[in-house]
Design a protein around this nucleic acid. Structure first.
Lengths: 205, 205
DNA sequence: TCTTTTTTGTGGTTTATTTCACGGAGGATT
DNA sequence: AATCCTCCGTGAAATAAACCACAAAAAAGA
């Protein structure tokens, strides 16, 4: 029986990957846990311990091959394949996300966009046509997408999330400022700038 | 000597506050650690322990007065006063943030917006006129703002952040997909959807 | 009034996470 | 080829976080 990896460790891997991809673009061939740690503010021991959960990727005396470690982390995180995204809610924020090039550059492609405003349906945003919310479950199921981004008002988020799950969505990136109550096997991450700002104001006078 | 509160505890307070403000709008007068915890997926014991770091806010047998606890948490987080924000980078995302009503409703007001694109300067976005990046330090210092939101390309983020700090900014909400290297007394929070998506794809096939 | 129920705040315990520190492998230097 | 230096992987130790369980307070009910 393999031991499961702590979620907090998994959460650091994308940060390692981001820093390593930056090094790759810079042409840096090799790095050490010390150097990588310095660049992202994490201790070298922590990085070595985290990576050792998945295998032995480094070489004593030399460090890590940047390209090799990028490949390994992409594989571990399952981002060595493209992922389809569903976007629900095409307000200002949804529009910004739909046109953001950062997703497609990193292997995430929006394949469906929904909004319940009839004035918006039919319009094209980014690469997709905005659809109405009718039969959203069926449309999502047909697309085969497993990940959704939710940029609807808080009042609608729970209901929409439940529809998405019926359509086969298994992970939700929730921009609505509210906690979703969903089955344990659905993975939810939250992005709420107010929460982050309030965290910081604690430390300000 | 007073013991300092763990940052992880501080980070949960805005979540408690958000749930409690929701209860307040619903007209709920009283709640318990159990009920609050159920609504946001945190154990009752954890909530009681966290709150006890700051005082005794509840009553045995009854629970917590929602209004009182909201007031207390707002005071602890210093959000019982309005905060001025500086926005740097008025692309799609910056525009979405500038027009988002959620900030002002929660006591955060954008008072300055900057962009280095001459085509944008002079235009009005939300309640403010977009300024060029010249003399950004001076303009920020004159505004007195202590918090900035950074929605510039990753390649510009470090340099801009340093300018902001020279202008008196002490907390930065960074939307650029890169780690900032700044003095320890500057508080930085990160919002990067790619990182969150990659965290979730680990758990997907 | 007396008993039962609810629910807090907290000391103590358990579990999780981070850090330490060292053996040893590999490369560089002389 | 001998020595020095770097830096990984990891068991052990230290620290941090979460959870448990209970006395006591308050309200509700009998």
């Amino acid at each position: 029986m393999e031991k499961s990896i702590p979620d907090i460790v998994v959460g650091r891997l994308p940060r390692y990957l981001r820093a390593l991809e930056y090094m790759l673009r810079k042409g840096i061939k090799t790095t050490s846990s010390q150097e990588l740690g310095d660049s992202i503010g994490i201790s070298a021991a922590q990085i070595r311990k985290d990576l050792s959960q998945f295998g032995e990727f480094g070489k004593q005396g030399t460090g890590y091959s940047v390209r090799f470690l990028v490949d390994q982390l992409q594989s571990i995180l399952h981002v060595n394949q493209p992922w389809d995204l569903v976007l629900v809610g095409v307000g200002d924020l949804g529009t910004a996300l739909a046109t953001y090039q950062g997703f497609v550059n990193r292997g995430f492609r929006i394949v469906l966009a929904f909004d319940n405003d009839p004035a918006k349906t039919g319009k094209i945003i980014g690469d997709v046509t905005i659809l109405g919310m009718d039969d959203i479950e069926v449309k999502v199921a047909e697309s085969g997408a497993k990940i959704a981004m939710l940029t609807v008002p808080a009042s609608a988020a729970q209901e929409v999330a439940e529809s998405l799950i019926k359509g086969g969505i298994r992970a939700i990136l929730n921009y609505a400022p509210m906690q979703l109550s969903l089955p344990a096997d659905i993975h939810v991450e939250y992005i709420d700038p107010i929460t982050k700002l309030q965290h910081m104001t604690y430390y300000l006078d």
